[in-house]
């Protein structure tokens, strides 16, 4: 057990994956000598050599395309896309090839490829470095889409993603890279399978569903609501965005009768829209208010000086909580 930042926890997860399976390959821009712009792959090329930790040419379409070829040859590639906004050149390979190859081959071809993507805002970055594009991939059948929010989950979810026989889009919230917490060397009792959501704080009054960079904000919101308004909010970290863990979600909403979904991505056709629709079907008679969404505005991600306004903060989450109770 050790105290690690999310970045380091992911790094040790990759280290384990590379150690445990000689077929695992890490590939991406600047992942070798530099150790990645967020240092997630720091030291790996030194330990495992340039055949297994590959500094690729600057070509996202081919990073994913060649990963598919490697997987067809029996390897398990872990690709790094340097920033969320730079995945689009690879979109064709992900959506038309990676996601569809299993179905196209009538289940014969598995593509165990992991695509790691640093995601979201809150780091004062320039354009294309703060996006939340998870629904493009969640909308695509044939992919698993997950998002970690803390070091322990980051470490174990990454190892599970590498072990998965399916392609996994693995999101890492940038603004949490330097948050420290305990990471266990062996799976802990609390370690969940990759397709489960995690209840971070239990409560009977309202379910607050979130993931990634917003988890911390929502936990703080729940603490404030408990202290100031004696409202017990159940905070659920979705972790898996596709498929959704509807069992955990419906059980929670069935108990509380109120639900708010919070994410950084714009609300229109965002993950909250899907979750809201699902809840309406699963838990219609339990609901005392409609599922409310809090998200980024429906605009291109704004310049850094405006991101505090754009990203849902404590006030906007609590405002949605108030609106739910006022219904």
């Amino acid at each position: 057990m050790s105290q690690l930042t999310l970045s380091k926890a992911l790094n040790t997860g990759l280290q384990q994956a590379l150690t445990n399976d000689p077929k695992v390959i890490v590939m991406g821009q600047d992942v070798g000598g530099l150790g990645g712009v967020f240092r997630v792959t720091d030291g790996l090329q030194k330990d495992f050599g340039p055949q297994r930790v590959i500094d690729t040419p600057l070509a996202e379409a081919s990073i994913v395309g060649t990963a598919i070829g490697l997987a067809l040859r029996g390897y398990r590639p872990i690709c790094e896309i340097q920033f969320d906004g730079f995945v689009y050149p690879a979109f064709n390979q992900i959506v038309s090839q990676l996601a569809k190859m299993r179905a196209r081959s009538h289940g014969q071809l598995a593509l165990p490829v992991v695509i790691r993507i640093p995601v979201g805002g809150g780091i004062g970055a320039v354009e294309h470095h703060s996006e939340s594009n998870e629904v493009y991939f969640a909308h695509t059948a044939g992919l698993r889409v997950v998002c970690c929010s803390n070091p322990q989950d980051g470490h174990w979810m990454l190892r599970q993603a590498v072990a998965s026989e399916d392609p996994v889009i693995f999101y890492e919230p940038k603004r949490r890279y330097w948050a420290k917490d305990e990471v266990t060397d062996t799976p802990a009792e609390s370690t969940l399978p990759l397709d489960r959501a995690r209840i971070l704080r239990s409560g009977d009054d309202l379910t607050l569903l979130t993931y990634g960079g917003m988890v911390d904000t929502c936990q703080r919101a729940a603490a404030v609501a408990a202290e100031e308004d004696r409202r017990e909010i159940e905070v659920v970290d979705l972790r898996t965005l596709s498929p959704l863990d509807m069992e955990t979600i419906a059980a929670s909403v069935g108990k509380t009768g109120r639900c708010v979904v919070a994410h950084e991505a714009p609300t229109f056709a965002g993950l909250g829209a899907e979750v809201g629709a699902e809840i309406t079907e699963y838990s219609f008679y339990d609901l005392q208010a409609p599922v409310l969404r809090v998200g980024g505005f429906n605009i291109p991600y704004p310049p850094a000086k405006y991101e505090d306004q754009h990203l849902p903060d404590l006030d906007r989450v609590l405002d949605a909580v108030d609106r739910s109770f006022a219904w």
């Binding site: 600047d30 070798g32 040419p57 600057l58």
Partner: peptide, 11 residues
């Protein structure tokens, strides 16, 4: 250079 990647790695 392209960040840490030398031209030789690109082409």
């Amino acid at each position: 250079w392209a960040i840490s990647t030398p031209a030789h790695t690109q082409t």
